[in-house]
Design a protein around this nucleic acid. Structure first.
Lengths: 154, 154
DNA sequence: TATTGTTATACTCTATAACTATA
DNA sequence: TATAGTTATAGAGTATAACAATA
């Protein structure tokens, strides 16, 4: 029998997603905590530090959160001195949100800690199993490839 | 347009779990809605209909939810006439929660609808890919197999 | 008129503490 | 004293509506 999982739920994807996610959080939370940020704030830094400067709304879309949620998220990392809001010169309605030097440093260090936590989380699958699991998860998270967008992997 | 996944997040498991789960809910929610229940209530029916009669607290533990959360959950399905609470003869503090005939019927029909939704969700992986994905997810949800094994929840 | 950021508000989900009745 | 169920309450997390500034 699948020890740990009640039979009636062993194949329920919702249940499995919830509990797998909880186990990940239990590992990744403590990993990023020493850097003063949580997983969501780290994701904000990662989005903003990825490339071109972008507005709050662009960042919110990429994160998959509402723009009203993004306000509090940017507030949090700005108060910690990790990002700065600046008015866009070309469109003064927009905030361009940029990483500070401290933000870049935190992104680098906390990102590494989180990567290690993720590796530990995936370890039971073995290297090849972990790789194909993440690939499959990317497919499922991206959803059915619609005609106008590129197909992620495979 | 953000087609697919933003590079900076493509390998972040928390992000992938969240969005994959959301996509699953978008499919499974409408599938069980015609039967008047949501996914969580269906899980309650599945736990209670799986075998031996059990108390609310036992069912809550297997579901991975708090016993106070379980009260409202059982309330909901009881009001719909799908389960009945009755006092345990051997320990009058306990509620034995049993499926009604309507509950069994709903479990059967809604369970089938949900299974179909899950198959549709996993379809992009192909049959073999879906199988190994679910297997991996079970491993990750159950956590490291330690000797005193209980589940992580709570 | 539409859009960006913002605030206020409400709703969902869940957990903690306290109460009751049983043991 | 401890446990099962319950209630009240509070904390996240997120979404909707409305407003000011700007386009």
């Amino acid at each position: 029998m699948t020890d740990g999982l009640p039979d009636a739920l062993a194949h329920r994807l919702g249940y499995l997603f919830k509990h797998a996610h909880q186990r990940l959080l239990a590992l990744a939370g403590p990993a990023t905590a020493p850097f003063g940020i949580d997983g969501r704030e780290l994701a904000v830094l990662a989005i903003l530090g990825a490339g071109v400067p972008m507005s709050q709304q662009e960042a919110a879309e990429r994160l998959g959160v509402d723009r009203t949620t993004m306000v509090a998220l940017v507030d949090a990392v700005e108060e910690k001195g990790l990002v700065e809001r600046r008015r866009s010169p070309s469109d003064r309605r927009k905030n361009i949100v940029q990483l500070t030097p401290a933000g870049r440093k935190t992104l680098q260090a906390a990102g590494q800690a989180r990567d290690e936590a993720e590796r530990a989380f995936l370890a039971p699958l073995g290297p090849a199993g972990a790789r194909s699991f993440v690939q499959a998860l990317q497919v499922l998270a991206a959803g059915p490839a619609d005609s106008t967008s590129q197909r992620p992997g495979r």
